[in-house]
Design a protein around this nucleic acid. Structure first.
Lengths: 147, 147
DNA sequence: TATTGTTATACTCTATAACTATA
DNA sequence: TATAGTTATAGAGTATAACAATA
């Protein structure tokens, strides 16, 4: 077998690229998140939407788009799915009728609590990898990379 | 307009989550990469494939999958596209006929050189954000997050 | 004119499962 | 039995462009 002759693969420039390393880490985190949320079809977009609605009742879709860094058109299907599952409601604003304020339902609030707890466990699994100071450092460095 | 009444959005727990920060950074990097590669339909998977083939002539698809952290089935279409564009060739191994060794063509090698140069420029744009030591630190911390 | 939300459409990336051919 | 590659299928996630309602 000539594959085993290639004892190890030369990754060339990849390990020095921020893009490659961030992508690899993101794939790993995304999968561990998906495992933690296994029962549902919860994704990072849906999770972000619920968190933002929970902390900002009446938030507009365009603000969701801005803070999740996705297009406003992409927000629509996230909101549709959440509304179908009765996690949130669109309510037409009375002062600006173009705007739909987003509000969690009681079920949505309860579900969000459970999600946050699962996320806490998920993030705790990473505590083995980093000292608290290292973790802060990592997040602070990542936050310099902005759209 | 009642949206302007919401002066700033409360991001709640999101800024403390590694997952959110890595995802945000990755979206930003992915877009800047896509802009830099604007003419082509180059993506991170295709780029990684060409780099690995360039540094490891005859590498097997299963090894590509392992190092790009994707399923071997997902590698097939990347290789198909690259072969259609005459960037690489599959060659059946003579010693293990299950295996397809992957080899860059001369065009593929030339194209990869150009891609690497564009990537260098792309990564250089990040030098404003980090001191060299910070950059090393960031990559080293990211590399602890493994599949 | 500009903004908010929507629809329609399409593309990328990836996974899973079942298959083949080889080992 | 196990491995390398393939096919077929599906789903998540996102973008773009054109549009209606409203400001």
């Amino acid at each position: 077998m000539d594959g085993s002759a290639m004892v190890s693969v030369d990754l060339d420039i990849l390990p020095d690229l921020l893009g490659y390393n961030v992508r690899t880490a993101q794939l790993a985190l995304q999968r561990s998140f998906a495992r933690a949320m296994s029962d549902s079809e919860m994704g990072s977009g849906l999770f972000g939407l619920l968190v933002l609605c929970g902390a900002n009742p009446g938030i507009a879709q365009v603000q969701i788009a801005e803070h999740l860094n996705i297009d406003k058109a992409s927000v629509v299907s996230l909101v549709d799915r959440s509304e179908e599952r009765s996690w949130l409601q669109r309510r037409r604003s009375t002062t600006d009728r173009r705007r739909h304020g987003l509000f969690l339902t009681p079920e949505g609030m309860a579900y969000l609590s459970a999600l946050k707890e699962r996320m806490r466990v998920c993030e705790e699994a990473l505590d083995d990898l980093f000292e608290p100071e290292e973790r802060r450092q990592l997040i602070s460095l990542l936050q310099r990379i902005r759209p």
